[in-house]
Structure formats: C-alpha cells, structure tokens
Design a protein around this nucleic acid. Sequence first.
DNA 1: CCCCCCCC
Length: 527
Amino acid sequence: MSHISALLVKGHLLLQLQAKGTVHPAMSIDFCDGQRWRRKSACCANATWLKGPKSCKEDDSCFCPLRLKGTSMTGADFFPIRELSTYQTKWTIKGRVTSKAPLRTFKQRNGSGQGKVFHVELLDAEGGEIRASFFNDAADKHFELLEVGKCFTLSKGQVKLANRQYNACKHRYELVFDKACQVDGVADDGKIDTVKFSVVELRSVKGKTLPCSVDVCGIVKDYDKSFAFTSKDGKDLVKRTLTLADDSGISMQVTIWGDRAKKEDSEFEGNPVVAMKGVSVKVWQGGLSGSLMEGGSLAFNPDMPEAHKVKSWWTQGGHAQSLTFISQTSGGGGARIAGKLMDVLEMKQKSEQLVNEQEMYSAYCRLSSVQLRKRDEIQPLYYNACLEPKEGNGLPCNRRVDEANFCAVCNKTVKAAPRLNLRCRFEDATGNFWVTTFHPAAEKVLGMTAQEVADIEKSEGREVVEAKLKSCYYAQILQVQLRAKPDNYNGEQRTNVSCPSAQPINRREHARFMLKEIEEMLAKAVC
DNA sequence: CCCCCCCC
C-alpha cells in the first residue's frame, strides 16, 4: 500500500475504510495531493463498497470520504465549494453571500403559470465560488434570509453544469435549490473573505471569446465626469467611464454605473488603483470595452498583491510608458466618439437614406469651411446661453438669453455664457458635407473656447475672428460624430443631421488604426 | 425550471 503514506492527514479515514473491508480494490480511490480528495466514482450514489446507498444518511457513520460533514478528515468541516461537481450528491457547504440578484418571476415554459427565482454568489474559506439559484418555495423562504455579506451553511441542492451564457461565476457548476433545500444562517466566519478577485491582466482579454466577464486590477489612468441619461427603454441611468491601465501595457475603457459612478470626481483623481470583479467585456466600435456589472465589486486601492504590483509599475515608469489602448480607436482622454465609423461619402448616403430610428455615424475628416455669411448676411458664431442649473440633472439650462441676460425659460435674469453654434463643412478624400455643429463639438473643431471666440470678436472685430476661424481649415484631422434623426418640418418628413461631438485624433492611435486597416487589406489581397 | 446584467 505504497500510496498510504501520501494520505497523511486524511489517511486515517481510508485506513478505517480498509480495516472495515469496505474498499473495493477495483475502486481505486486515487487521492490525495495533500489538500483535496479526488475520486472518479460518485460517492453515495455508488456506495455498495461503503455501507449501501440507503444507509448513507446525515449523521450516519457512513465513511464517505466526499462527505466531510461530521468527520474529522480535515480541519474544515464543510465541503469545499471548489470541489462541487455532479459526482457529489451529498455535501454541505459553508459560504458567504457575496452578491444577490433581485427576485424575479417568469412564465413557466411548460405552460404551468408563474415561477420565481433569484440567485446569489457564494464564497467559502478556501476561496471557491459558485452561483446558487433558488426557485419558487425556496425563493420565498430564503430571499430575505440570504443577505449579502452573511454566512450560511447550505445543503440538499442540485449541482448542474453552469450555463456560461448567463453565469459568469468562476465555477464549472452551479447550484439549484428547491423546496427540499437546507439553508441556515451561521455566525460570521472570518476565514471567508467578503470578496474574491480573480484578477487577469488586461492584455489577456484580447485573446478571449467575447463577450466575457473578468476581474481586473488597474490604474485609473483617466476618468470622465459622471453622466446621467435615460436609456432607450426609459431607465434613468448614471454612468462614468474610466480608462484603466495595467502593467501588461494595455489600457481599456470600463464604464461604471449608478452609485459607483456618482462618487465624487476627487475619488478618481490621482491615478488610484482599482480592483473590479465582474467586468463584462465586449466589442464596441471595433475596440474592446468593459462595463462593471451591478453584481460585481469595485475596490479602491485594495490591499492585494495585484494592486501593489500595478501601483509600483505605475510609479516606476509605467505612467510614462506608451500603452496599447484596446477600446475604440478614437481620441484619447475626454469624450469619445460613438457611431459606426465610415467615410464621408458613406455617411452622407446613409443619413439621406435614414427611415426609422436615429443613427450615429463617425468619420475621420478635416474642417474645410465655416459658414460666416448667408446671402451676405453675417452669421452669428455663438449665442449667450443661460447657466441656470436645470431641475433634476443639474445641467445648465442653455437656452438663449436676451441682451439683458433674461432667460424666458427660467423667467428671470440669469448668468450666461457664450455657446458656439456653427455650420461647418467637413471633408475627407471621398467628399464633404455641411452640418450644424453644436458647442462642445465646435470648441474641439476650432481648438478655441466659445469665450475666446466671443472675446476676439468683441475686442478685435469680426474680420479678425473670421481670419482666426479660417486658420483652422484643414488644420487637423478630426473624428466627428454625426447624428441623423428623422424629423418633421411643416408636416414634411426629413432628416435632421447634426454634429454633437468631435475630437482631434490622437496621431499615434490613428496611425495604429490605419496600419491595422492596411494589414487587413493586405490579408484580403490575393498573394 | 430563469437568463435581465444597462449607454453611447
């Protein structure tokens, strides 16, 4: 029995089994690595060589090596979550609830009315994690009980293969609890962490099948302001986009939501390290971008090896290193451009053919003209906009005020500031188009603030400001965003096209983008 | 047995 010496801690149990003559030689219990029991056959379901399936009950003296409860086989009295599989039918795990989804109802597929379900994620002292779903009666019974952060023992659930389409938890299996389940709240177990990050390098997400869910740890290289908006299906959302970077030389955008996004800007200032659990990575605009899911976690400057590693990388030169930005290949820092990338000609055609919903396009092009006159009449370049914060989102009212700074919407005299409103012509090798270019885009296009434009016009005159604008023609490559919106004008159907945002390109990134295009073209070419 | 995981 040469393998006996390897059994050590757990060995006494096998010896007991052998002493009782219950181990069938052909069963080859091939364990152990000093930590875990490994055996290929099912435990109690195939227990003839134990004491017979019917006698294998709770508190029975059945020497089932895979049912740790009530034995002294290891220091742990519970079955390791990591080891759960369909080969084990009897187990009791002890874990902390690390996340919990809301209770949902659904229509039973086989017609018989409503069902309900919720799920949690459980973490145990050995760092194993698994998702558990509770159905119907079990859902009613345990929804309130299973609070995030609390510890429980759980048994009498079914183990099934995790459905990777919906389950991002890092376990091959998931648990399903029904009426028969046994769930008990227990005292907090300090050996069980509150969250477990299984960090991967940003570089590694490039090779993954997308969409995927990962845990990451990186430096907040950049952050946007939080942004409140209403989604297409009417949900009020708040988001903030961060650019994370790590020592694998990659940077990527990750969007955070809700309260996480609403934290003060100062929290994101100074390049803190963040660890994120449950970042969903998908392709967006030809690049990869992440979104931190609600059930995930976010930790600032966490005390973990990956965080210390990435921090020292950043301070010891990483901040100056040139990184590969794997999100959309537009601008760098600040607002990014959304919309399908195409050339100017295609953009023109698409916007003319628009029928139903609003569409966004973007193109690399240059400013070729600004409309300064219309039938000899001088066109205003800006207007004075009301700065009064709007109710709800706190953004400025932005309505035009009169010469006395009276805002008709707010019905009072207000503070005001100039906002650009230009009619611009943009051009690339395929064509050009005229478009109303709103303030934020116009400021980027000119590389001047509205205040500067207004000041020059007032102090130096119209001619000087016009010359200044003309000096911007063809000056830089921009990525402009075009919004085409179906509209009704005097009962006539027409498309309203505007430019809500624009950004000078980052030459380095743009060069990479063009190289990639060339490579793709070469790959397609006949050799 | 469910299955949404958000936005441009």
